[in-house]
Each structure stands twice: as structure tokens, then as C-alpha cells.
């Protein structure tokens, strides 16, 4: 038996919004620790991982691990039927269930909606990502700042370079109409409202596709802050953490390389 109840549908709605433009379908792996998924986009440029830890749920029961193959567009359609303050309960049989049940209940518990989502058999490839990579540079910034930087720059062109030196990050773009750049310095005071922190072991300069960096802005509502981790020649890791260590959405983006 798998049973998981979220107090408010907002949590899962936001998480799905953050991933549904990158992947069409994925296996939601349920274990005693929580709900997680890993999936790549078709051209293998971006890997998305998501975890909702068991403590994110008001009720969480997973007697034995199961994998639910879900079409992201279908689950999003069903979750549109939940008001943001409605609770969401997901129930599935752990013995080869062919559908998962979604129950939405309003705050006063006098309106209860039931939906069944058909599950799919998805043959997915799991990639092994190093857990604690020793990154050369890590930058943390308000997620609203992330949105502004990459929605602005990706309008100019799709080749975005991130260069991080001591205390400064430079984001630049080259496009058909021209180019642009933006420098962001580490904020001085620790009690600054919207801090930018930059940790550099070694300066790093890498180029990434702007289309993806802009798509990741869909995760901004999840978290007040975002962390970008870079190592020369390796995929960029971007993390949006849910409050109270309830989980996260992470993206791994393959760099553009010199030919």
C-alpha cells in the first residue's frame, strides 16, 4: 500500500510546473524515504531530478518500494482540479497497480474530489550522478534574481557564458542582434535581505544553452533561493530547495564545448 497526503496541493503543483516542460513522462519512485524521480530530456542535454521527502507529507505510508510510470501532462491536468488550499492524497496499490488515485479535499472537508490516473510502463535509464561533487565554484542567489538574469539574457541569444571569479559572477550572452553581459557581486553584509554568495575554489568559465537556463525559471516559485554549482568542463548543477528540507528540484545541464 502506498498512501501520501499533502496538506496543500501547492507543493506538488509547483514541483510539477518545474519539470513538465522538460520531460514528458517519468517513473515516480516511492520508498519509505519519500517520492523521487529522475529523467532526461530527449536530446540528453538536461537531467531533472526531484525529491519530496516523507516529512513533506502530512501522512506518508509506503510498505514497499514501487515505481509509478506517469505522464507529466496527464498528472498536471488532474492536479489542475485541486484548489491550491485543497489537500492532496495519492493512493496506489503496491502490487502492480495500473492506476493511482488522487483525492482532493477542501479546508472545511465538505468537498471531496476523486480522480484516477492511468499508470504507464516506462523503460527509463537511470544515470549515476556523483552525490557530493567537489565543485570549483558555487553561487547562491535569490531565485527572483535568477529569473531576471536568464529571462533577460535568453531573449538576446542562446549562448550564455557564466564566468565566476573571486566574489563576482559574470553572465554574458551572444546573439544575432548583439550581445550583453551582467555582473553580479557577492553582497557585503550577511544580513542583507537578498544575499548573493559566491564560493570559488578555482575561477571557472563555461557556456550553456540559454533556452534551458530560462526553462529552469519555472522552478522559481519552489524556493526563495537557488544554487548554481560549476566545475570546468562538467555539467552545471542547479538546485531549488523546498522549505523545511521537504525536498528539492535539481537540474543538470550539459555544457556547450569548444569544437
Amino acid at each position: 500500500m502506498f498512501e501520501a497526503k499533502l496538506t496543500e496541493s501547492t507543493t506538488i503543483k509547483r514541483v510539477l510546473d518545474a519539470i513538465k516542460d522538460l520531460i514528458q513522462q517519468a517513473n515516480f519512485d516511492c520508498s519509505a524515504d519519500g517520492l523521487s524521480l529522475q529523467a532526461m530530456d530527449t536530446p540528453h542535454v538536461c537531467l531533472t531530478t526531484m525529491t519530496l521527502r516523507s516529512q513533506a507529507f502530512e501522512v506518508y505510508r509506503c510498505d514497499r518500494p514501487l515505481s509509478m510510470g506517469i505522464n507529466l501532462s496527464s498528472i498536471s491536468k488532474i492536479l489542475k482540479c485541486a484548489a491550491s488550499k485543497d489537500s492532496v492524497k495519492i493512493v496506489a496499490d503496491d502490487e502492480g497497480a495500473d492506476c493511482a488515485e488522487f483525492i482532493f479535499e477542501n479546508e472545511s472537508a465538505d468537498r471531496i474530489a476523486h480522480f484516477e490516473l492511468k499508470l504507464m510502463d516506462i523503460d527509463s535509464e537511470h544515470l549515476s550522478i556523483p552525490e557530493d561533487s567537489d565543485y570549483q565554484a558555487i553561487i547562491s542567489m535569490p531565485s527572483a534574481e535568477y529569473r531576471r538574469i536568464f529571462s533577460d539574457l535568453s531573449i538576446i541569444g542562446d549562448t550564455i557564458t557564466i564566468e565566476i571569479n573571486k566574489n563576482t559572477a559574470c553572465f554574458s550572452v551572444e546573439g544575432d542582434i548583439g550581445n550583453g553581459s551582467l555582473n553580479l557581486a557577492q553582497t557585503d553584509s550577511a544580513d542583507e535581505k537578498n544575499p548573493v554568495t559566491i564560493n570559488v575554489k578555482e575561477p571557472v568559465k563555461m557556456t550553456f544553452p540559454g533556452k534551458y537556463l530560462n526553462t529552469f525559471t519555472k522552478a522559481v516559485p519552489i524556493s526563495e533561493f537557488v544554487t548554481l554549482c560549476l566545475t570546468d568542463g562538467n555539467p552545471l548543477a542547479i538546485e531549488f530547495s523546498l522549505p523545511d528540507e521537504a525536498g528539492f528540484v535539481r537540474y543538470f545541464l550539459a555544457p556547450k564545448i569548444d569544437q
Partner: peptide, 14 residues
């Protein structure tokens, strides 16, 4: 000038 790499160049299958 730049070529888009893909993740399979960096991460192996589990």
C-alpha cells in the same frame, strides 16, 4: 564554434 555536449558524455548508467 560551440558544440552542445550531452549528459551521457559525463554520467554513466546506474
Amino acid at each position: 564554434r560551440d558544440k552542445q555536449s550531452n549528459l551521457k558524455m559525463f554520467y554513466g548508467s546506474e
